[in-house]
Design a protein around this nucleic acid. Structure first.
Length: 401
RNA sequence: GGGUCGGUGGUCGAGUGGUUAAUGGCACCGGACUGUAAAUUCGGCUCGCGAAAGCGAUACGCAGGUUCAAAUCCUGCCCGGCCCA
């Protein structure tokens, strides 16, 4: 079952957890591997948004490492826990998702996870399968195993309690529900982002109580969003989606702060650690150009999701359009459709939310037609044939008659 | 259940009857500079109509009320923090 049977269990454990944030514990993982049977490994994802992003990819990639090592890997879709809402890292009550939203989000998850994971070797499960069957009696027995003090130990709860931000009782149920997932599936290993450490660790006493071996908890670093400050999250708008088109992926990567280059090289472009270290050295002593390195990282990570050709094309697009200010060869088209006001066309193209906003953009000098700035807010479309409407440096549309 | 304080634009937070579509910070969008980085700097940041000056609509938890005039006062309701039980 192992790709490299010569290695000791300890070496395999170290290989599997290389680059991880926290392992509870490496010794236990080695012992569990020593038993010689494939481990039951799982990652839980709550379908809270329709799209996965590079932050999810970090932990999905770790999951794939376990697939490659021959283990029984489960991708758990938290269709039930999404209804409760994960309080992790929150400083406010999370609004409840409707069943419709959850259902819609779930549809895209498995397909998008497939961009990183070999889904043919992964078991897909849903936690409503067991959580929705629990009775009130079952639930209060589970709840009685954890104290309020333990819950309040958590940083996010502690901060919210001290700052007077509401904490609803059901939020305490979330970690317990996630712990019960581990019991229901009797798993050996659970993965998660580093913000999930508490949720993972709390599973262990529950499993022991149920007569199972406690799971080994492994967390991966959280990838920062392109703003370089907060963790990547769609709701913060600082994410790079796994399904983003190549040009968007490339362009967004070019916008990350320089300080994030090694992080993105390691966690987003998956460079091996010796290359990341070389990059860090180069940046420190000035022998590496941050912009060139950023392009290499961007190209490598685009290649992971769209292939090498698309990545090279994205780089070429960036260098021409953004760096040299050329008008791109290909762009969406929009028919005039009887519209004559420039502002109307900008709205129709989706480059502004309202006509007033479009008029402002024109006044700001952000709008060009065939490369020439048009600053008259009342400008009308006069071009005879097709012409290129550009807003800002990266929004283009070809207007046809 | 009682007491008390509070609910303002994406967010934080001023504003306590009248040039108030509402100071300011952050976020965001654009311009200049640049490497779509950082730093700096300038402008913008509710919607509709109009070539323009402008006009109109909507907005400070919800619903009413007082007033020439309310985010600001009154009543009721909803939601939250803290204290007491």
């Amino acid at each position: 079952m192992t790709a490299t049977p010569a290695r000791s269990a300890r070496e395999r454990a170290e290989f599997l957890t290389d680059g991880c944030d926290h392992v509870e514990s490496l010794r236990e993982l080695a012992e569990r591997l020593e038993r010689g049977r494939p481990l039951r490994v799982y990652l839980g994802l709550d379908p809270t948004s329709p799209d996965l992003h590079l932050g999810h990819a970090v932990v999905l990639r770790l999951l794939q490492r376990f697939v490659d090592d021959g283990h029984n890997v489960i991708l758990l879709i938290g269709d039930f826990t999404a209804r409760i809402g994960d309080p992790s890292g929150r400083n406010a009550l999370r609004p409840a998702l409707s069943d419709e939203q959850i259902g819609a989000n779930m549809k895209t998850y498995a397909a998008q996870a497939g961009k990183v994971l070999d889904m043919s070797r992964v078991t897909l499960r849903y936690n409503s399968e067991w959580l929705s069957k629990l009775t009130f009696t079952d639930i209060y027995k589970l709840l009685s195993q954890t104290t309020v003090a333990q819950m309040l130990e958590r940083n996010d709860f502690k901060q919210r309690y001290e700052s007077g931000t509401p904490i609803a009782l059901h939020e305490f149920v979330y970690p317990v529900a996630v712990a019960y997932d581990s019991v229901a599936m009797n798993v050996d290993v659970e993965l998660g982002g580093s913000d999930q450490l508490f949720n993972l660790l709390i599973s262990r006493p529950y499993q022991i109580h149920a007569g199972q071996d406690p799971e080994i908890c492994i967390t991966v670093p959280l990838l920062e969003g392109i703003d370089g400050e907060k963790k990547m999250s769609k709701s913060l708008g600082n994410h790079i989606g796994l399904t983003d088109p190549p040009n968007d992926m490339f362009g967004k990567t070019m916008r990350i702060p320089d300080a994030l280059l090694p992080r993105y090289a390691r966690l987003a472009a998956w460079w091996p650690s010796d290359q990341v270290q070389a990059l860090e050295r180069g940046l420190r002593d000035g022998s590496a150009s941050p912009m060139d390195e950023k392009k290499r990282i961007a190209e490598d990570l685009v290649a992971l999701y769209h292939g090498g050709d698309a990545a090279r094309a994205a780089r070429d697009f960036f260098e021409r359009t953004i760096q040299r200010g050329e008008i791109p060869a290909e762009m969406p088209e929009l028919s005039l459709d009887g519209r004559t006001k420039l502002a109307d066309l900008i709205v129709a193209a989706g480059f502004a939310e309202s006509k007033r906003a479009a008029t402002r953009l024109i006044g700001e000098g952000a709008v060009r037609v065939d490369g020439t700035v048009v600053s008259d807010p009342n400008a009308r479309w006069t071009a005879e044939g097709p012409a290129v409407l550009q807003v800002g440096s990266r929004k283009f549309v070809r207007i046809t008659q």
